[in-house]
Structure formats: C-alpha cells, structure tokens
C-alpha cells in the first residue's frame, strides 16, 4: 500500500515535470529576458553607473530619483506632459476612427477586400521606412509633397514637422495613418457577432442606431478594453516613430516623450538616470493599467470559454 502510494506520488511528480516541460521555454524566457533585467535596472537606478565605465558604479541611494524630480524636474514633467497629451489626444481619435471604418468594412460588399487592404497598407510600413517617408513628405519646405498638395488647393505652405508649433500636431496626424491595425481587430470582432442577434433586432424593427448601441458596441466591449489597455501602454512608450524621423531640431524637441528622454540619458552615458526614469515610467504605466482594470465593469465577456 505504502509502496503503491509512493509510486503514485512519483508518477504524479513525473507527470507534472513532463507537463511543465512544455511551458519551460517561456518560464526561462521571462526569468532571463524580463525579470533579470527589470531587477538589475532597479539596481542601476540606485547607483551612479556610466555606460563608459565597466560594471556597476557606486551606490548613491535615491540620488538619481532626487535629480529627476529636482534638477531635471522641469524637463521630466514636460516629457510626462507631452506623453500624456499625446495619449489623450491620439488614442480616442484612433479608437473612434478605426471603429467607424470597421463599421463600414465589416459587412461584405463589392470591393470590401480592396478597401481593407488599402487601409491596412500604411501599417505595413517598417518603422524606418515610415520615418524616412514622413520626414520627406511632411517637412516644412515648399517642395515637400504635402505642401505641394496644399499649394494645389491654393493654401500657404504649412510647417508640419519643421516648426515647434506644428510638429506635435503633425506627429499625431501621421500616427492616424496606422489606425488600420485596430480596424482589423474591430472587423474581426464585429463579424463574430452571431447573426441571430441581428435577426432578432430586425424582427423588433430596431433601426441602425439601436443596433449599433444595443448590439454591436456591447458585443465589442472586450475588444474596446483590449485596444484601450494596449493603446495606453503603447502610446506611453512611443519611441521608434520619433527617432526614425529626420527632421529639424525645433520639431523633434516637441516630441520629447518619456522614452525618448530615457534614450537621451542612456546616450549621454548616464545609464543610472536612464534606469531611474524607466522605473518612473513603469510605475506610471502600472498605476494607469491597474485603474483601467478596476473600472472595467462595462466589459461584456459573454460566457466563460
């Protein structure tokens, strides 16, 4: 009996090991490529470490954080401000516009596939290509493509990326060209709504708006939530779209988002301040995500899968 139990126990452990082995790669991956750097980054943020000197520098306590919110305060708040402004303006527009487009394109009609491809096309542009392209199309010279178009309509040249007044706006505008990626998610979600629901609505004589607000939007809430959360996280980390731009300093300085600032510290050989600021960003993202999760009662999950 006792022996049996032991073999059973042994088998159970073996069983567990053989199952766990399948997820081992991701466990190792997270331990090595996520947790270790997260922790060492926290470590660096309490030291004075330069990229030009090997190893970890001397321990300085909270000095780096004090610097961030002391000496550098004005710039850091500025960065946090622009990052938030960008998120607050661009995210809702992106969500609404992409949802509207998806409503148009969710139904099958002649040519729908072509339209979907066309709207998705700018998403396919590699970050570097998109940087090269927009620096050339949307600069302030009167020979840039957008200004030539404006001139054709009789308008004066617009500064676009080249002026401190218009660069931010231009950046948001250019970002809207990638709404195709969320559009395609919406289309999938809308198409997945069972036809029976619409049939019932039809029988009851519901008009388009009733259907939109009573069926489509509620059924899309999980996707709204997903797009919202990922949208917030991604916009707060906006970076490669900025550094691949080859534009005038006046314009580029307006795109001083937090991660751009982190990279700037890192590039000035100041590794520890870069790490400290990235932890500040981490805390911001964590708090906002947690709040969003807390207030997600409006999400309709259907039956648990």
């Amino acid at each position: 009996m006792d022996k049996n139990m032991r073999t059973a126990q042994k088998r159970k452990i073996l069983e567990w090991i053989s199952s766990f082995a399948f997820v081992l790669p991701v466990v190792i991956g997270i331990a090595v490529f996520t947790l270790t750097p997260m922790i060492s980054s926290l470590g660096y943020s309490f030291t004075r470490t330069y990229t030009t000197v090997a190893g970890m520098g001397e321990f300085v306590g909270l000095k780096n954080y004090e610097n961030l919110f002391g000496v550098y305060a004005e710039q850091i708040w500025d960065s946090i401000g622009s990052t938030f402004l960008f998120t607050v303006i661009s995210l809702p527009i992106t969500l609404v516009l992409s949802f509207a487009l998806a409503l148009f394109l969710a139904k099958d009609f002649k040519g729908v596939k072509v339209f979907r491809v066309v709207y998705y096309l700018p998403v396919m542009l590699p970050a570097v290509v998109s940087g090269i392209l927009w620096s050339s199309l949307a600069n302030g010279s009167d020979t840039s493509a957008l200004n030539v178009v404006l001139a054709a309509f009789g308008a004066k040249p617009f500064a676009f990326y080249d002026s401190e007044k218009t660069a931010f706006f231009t950046f948001i505008l250019m970002g809207l060209f990638t709404i195709g990626s969320s559009m395609i998610l919406w289309i999938a979600q809308i198409k997945a709504i069972p036809d029976s629901m619409f049939e019932v609505a039809d029988l009851e004589g519901a008009n388009y708006f009733v259907r939109l607000f009573k069926i489509i939007i509620p059924m899309c809430t999980p996707m709204i939530f997903y797009n919202l959360i990922m949208g917030i996280i991604n916009s707060l980390q906006i970076f490669s779209n900025v550094i691949t731009l080859n534009i005038e300093p006046a314009g580029k300085e307006q795109l001083n988002f937090i991660v751009v600032r982190i990279y700037d510290f890192y590039n000035s050989t100041d590794l520890s301040t870069a790490c400290a600021l990235s932890w500040v960003l981490f805390v911001i993202i964590a708090v906002i995500s947690a709040l969003t999760f807390k207030f997600n009662k409006w999400v309709y999950y259907g039956e648990e899968v």
């Binding site: 050339s136 600069n139 010279s141 080249d162 080859n246 005038e248």
Partner: peptide, 9 residues
C-alpha cells in the same frame, strides 16, 4: 541659406 535643415537632411 535655407532656413530649414530638414528636407531629409
């Protein structure tokens, strides 16, 4: 001199 250093640099 042109006032913009942009035009793709």
């Amino acid at each position: 001199i042109r006032q913009s250093l942009a035009s793709g640099g």
